[in-house]
Design a protein around this nucleic acid. Structure first.
Lengths: 156, 156
DNA sequence: TGTCTTATTGTGATTGATTCAAAATAAGTG
DNA sequence: CACTTATTTTGAATCAATCACAATAAGACA
């Protein structure tokens, strides 16, 4: 019965479980991110306003930041892009971004369950206690290859 | 004899090889990045001004961007941080950042030579032609663990 | 060595993404 | 229903980076 009434109830339950109040702003943001994975705050605001027109940009930033801290959302920052958000959390999947058009695709963990959680430290490095490993693939998507739409400036 | 007169000559040669003019600004930026790996533009500006006081922030941004495109510098963008630059290019090493203090350490490629260049695509994903894979480890460094200086807000 | 071309840098203003501060609102509790 | 305070809103501010254009200087060639 956890998700009986659609994700709406699940979101609410998760918020309460984290000691957060269930507000229409939070639910609208969560729904918007669910509908538009890999979206920046600005797009999430636009999408969420479809069901909650009075929603504020500031609120979106606060909510996104808080929910990310709670691990109810995941954030990643591709080069030359604002932060992107998604509701797919808990697994350690990674991302591929097209350096030409910016398209983002999900990628399964390449090395199994815990991807690269045992890094090979440099001789002179002071090892850290690694919590997560974000892998960001960069390349050219099929669409951009076909249309020859190569990037004007080849970023790294 | 390529590096006979120190890195200075090597930088100059590399710039010419790329059809770039050898300017004191470029050399100062390169030297600054060499001396301070994993530094943001602002710090590079400060460091480069020690030997070239009249250097401009704008020039630093232009030079960093151009040299990154030429693969003479490498840029990466940790979460909640401005872009960082380093002169170590050509190998596919990765980075570990402390989510508490921001310290950055170099990490050898975990999987061998070409790390995760063969991603496991999602069923519904449209595969891209991957060019590089950036791996960013996030954790707590020894220093912060010892001093119990845990992050106030646990970012993802 | 001097002149010329134009790549490069400097000057000044501007954008975009995000954050801060404080007042207004509303979710949950009793 | 009233109360507490988390949350949102309002409005301004910050930081990183970029744009436009004038000034400068590196490299080429006479």
């Amino acid at each position: 019965m956890t998700e009986s009434n659609g994700p709406q109830e699940a979101w609410a339950a998760a918020l309460r479980a984290h000691g957060r109040r269930v507000t229409k702003q939070r639910l609208a943001v969560l729904a918007a991110v669910e509908r538009h994975p890999h979206s920046p705050a600005e797009h999430i605001l636009a999408a969420a306003r479809e069901e909650l027109p009075e929603l504020t940009a500031q609120s979106v930033y606060v909510v996104l930041g808080d929910l990310t801290d709670l691990h109810m959302l995941r954030r990643f920052e591709p080069p030359h892009s604002p932060a992107l958000y998604e509701t797919r959390v808990g697994d350690n999947h990674h991302h591929a971004v097209c350096i030409s058009c910016g398209r983002v695709e999900d990628v399964e963990c390449a090395v199994g369950h815990a991807p690269c959680l045992t890094p090979h430290w440099d001789e002179d490095a002071k090892p850290m206690t690694i919590q997560i490993a974000d892998v960001l693939y960069q390349g050219i998507c099929q669409e951009c290859q076909r249309t020859q739409k190569l990037p004007s400036n080849v970023q790294q």
